[in-house]
Computed example of a mutant assay.
Amino acid sequence: MSFRRYVALGDSFTEGVGNPDPASPNGVRGWADLVAGQLARDNPAFGYANLAIRGRLLRPIIDEQLEGAVAMQPDLVTIYAGGNNLMRPKLDLDALAAEYDDAIGKLAATGARVLMWTAYDGSWAPVFGVLRGRWAVYNELVREIADRHGATIVDFWRFTEYRDLRMWDFDRLHMSAAGHHNMAIRVLDLLDVPHTLEPVRFDEAPLLTRAAQRADDRRWMREFFVPWVAHRVRGISSGDGISPKHPALPPLGS
């Protein structure tokens, strides 16, 4: 299938955080940009908008991005939302799902192909394991929403290749450049779109001693997790002052 108008919505996952690129808007280039680049091949009329902003909760994504996306009359929409909500201490999953359901219904009503993601099972990583039950319930609710509106699930929960830490940035919360590249391939293959992206291949991972792993975990706690929690307590978002990287739908490269 050929797509002509692609709109990407969401948070840091879709903006591309973890894949730095000084030449790209907002200084990041992610899987959505890679997908758009492949969809634009031999398609001069193709247009791409990326409205995602890092740190956004579900409600701001809906309030700031949904209406504009619908107005663009897309034929392809990708949305990953709710991930930042899942990291909050208190959460009403049923209320979150109801808001998400309404948003997906409005996107599906445009006639576009809609892709939405399950949460990743990061329970193997320190700290995040306590959230596994919450993530699993969220995923079941997302699957129900997708079924109800004919959306397509990108089943991140089952992507076992992401158990390799090289698929993740240092913060273990955002994908690395390799992780974004792999996600673009996953999306293009799901859409059955021919592409030129080469599979991600790593050399054999070095074996860390238990002591080295503990030291790495302590460094992660000290340099990322503690400051991240402090920012949340103070109400500081990584998306403060950030604008959408591709806010409109001109032909790619125009």
Rank of each mutant, 00 (worst) to 15 (best):
L58C: 02
L58K: 08
I61V: 15
I62T: 07
Q65T: 07
G68C: 08
G68I: 01
A69W: 12
A71E: 14
A71P: 15
P74K: 05
L76K: 01
T78V: 03
T78E: 09
I79F: 06
I79A: 09
I79R: 04
A81N: 09
A81Q: 02
G83V: 05
G83A: 15
N84Q: 05
N84I: 01
N84S: 04
N85Q: 13
N85W: 12
L86K: 01
M87Q: 08
M87K: 04
M87V: 11
P89D: 13
L93D: 15
L93C: 11
L93G: 14
A95R: 13
L96A: 11
L96Q: 11
L96H: 11
Y100W: 10
Y100D: 10
Y100A: 12
D101G: 06
D102K: 12
D102E: 11
D102Q: 15
D102P: 01
I104K: 07
G105W: 04
G105E: 06
G105L: 03
G105T: 03
L107V: 00
A109H: 09
A109E: 09
R113W: 00
R113N: 14
R113S: 14
V114G: 06
V114E: 05
M116R: 00
W117I: 00
W117V: 01
W117F: 08
W117L: 00
W117E: 00
W117K: 00
T118I: 04
A119H: 07
Y120L: 09
Y120H: 10
S123Q: 06
W124K: 08
A125T: 09
A125K: 13
P126T: 04
P126G: 12
P126N: 02
V127M: 09
V127E: 10
F128H: 03
G129K: 15
G129I: 11
L131G: 02
R132G: 02
G133M: 11
G133K: 14
R134K: 12
W135A: 14
A136W: 06
Y138F: 10
V142R: 04
V142S: 03
